[in-house]
Design a protein around this nucleic acid. Sequence first.
DNA 1: TTCATTAGTTAACCTATGTGAACGATTTTT
DNA 2: AAAAATCGTTCACATAGGTTAACTAATGAA
Lengths: 207, 207
Amino acid sequence: MEPENKFAKLKAHFAETDLFSGEDFEKLISYFTVTTLKKKEFFNKQGELCRHLAFVNSGCLRAFHTDDKGDEFTMYFAFLNWWVGDKTSFYSGTPSRFSVQALEDSEIFYADKTNWEKALDEIPAFEKWYRIKTRKSYEATQQKIIDTQTESAEQKYLKLLKNAPDIVQRIPQHYIASYLGIKPQSLSRIRKNIFKPNQSELNKNVE
Amino acid sequence: MEPENKFAKLKAHFAETDLFSGEDFEKLISYFTVTTLKKKEFFNKQGELCRHLAFVNSGCLRAFHTDDKGDEFTMYFAFLNWWVGDKTSFYSGTPSRFSVQALEDSEIFYADKTNWEKALDEIPAFEKWYRIKTRKSYEATQQKIIDTQTESAEQKYLKLLKNAPDIVQRIPQHYIASYLGIKPQSLSRIRKNIFKPNQSELNKNVE
DNA sequence: TTCATTAGTTAACCTATGTGAACGATTTTT
DNA sequence: AAAAATCGTTCACATAGGTTAACTAATGAA
């Protein structure tokens, strides 16, 4: 891909917001660096300082926390135009509470704190965009707490199948399990219940 | 309390941030209204529009989500200087995803959207303070997801006892249970294990 | 003061998910 | 092509927490 086209998808994304002029966008990308991650490569690691935030341009990553027992819990998957990184670590200098790892070969645009803050300062449209994104991400996080506490694993899986079948297809099952907060064996069992007998939520109200 | 003293605690709180001049503060409170809530009274209800955000000046409130089965899950307790309300509803006009209710007779300072946004526009120090608070609240929410998924109910309770013994003492036990995401009976059982035999986390490494 | 309500405890039983281990299928590496 | 690693499935068994229900203590209202 030609260098000047590298940012085409990102540009389309910002254009959709109606906040950005072409000039704003040119300025924005001047603060970012392009790089690629091979499958399984890390963008940042839990326990270390998170020095960059990034946009996903292609591929897919996941953010996951590893607990004392070594069990992993996937907090989110990140696709095209998502941004990734532990903002808390990035801003406060505390150790990252989760790792971010490529699940496929991926291309990202990243900026360090200096550049990120320059971009925020100098491009009001970006600052506004970022504030909105932060709000949405806060909302999603709150919603995830509610869902986590409120629904059974089967309900969560069915909801995911319904709302994001693409994710379920694209991502290996054991990562889905870790996203739902259960073990791969349990997800296997749940799938068996869903697809075979006349038991599950899928088949209720069928009398 | 004299009217001009009503805001003393809030003023002290903002003074601590080093962001606010006395003048900023006078301006700020001009946008807020004082009111009291009796124990069990609601600040806002799940499903309705959240029209106000508020600071707690005295007493204590809780934010909780009620699911389809009628079970409640407490998202947070709010004490002195916390602010409460469903920001998502407040900003986006969507129905609140949780209710906020006084656990004790409480005094709060609240503002509707018009006043809140005027305050943000006209008092840069407030805007900055709010951005920091929002970030912290996002961090706390993310941390709560991690804790929720990672720890057993007993671990969560022990952690709470250690980090916030005041909360445990001040707040009725069934609300604590709902904060931990379990039933009151289960918390009773857990407490029994902790305080009686040589079983629990409390007594390990004692050989 | 009495009655009614709310809060906390206990116990027996139930259920969803975890655990460990085995197996075949798929993918990656050599 | 072979060997190694990863992935998904299944099963038997273990366990944390939910459910129901009964009982007592504490609180609040009449």
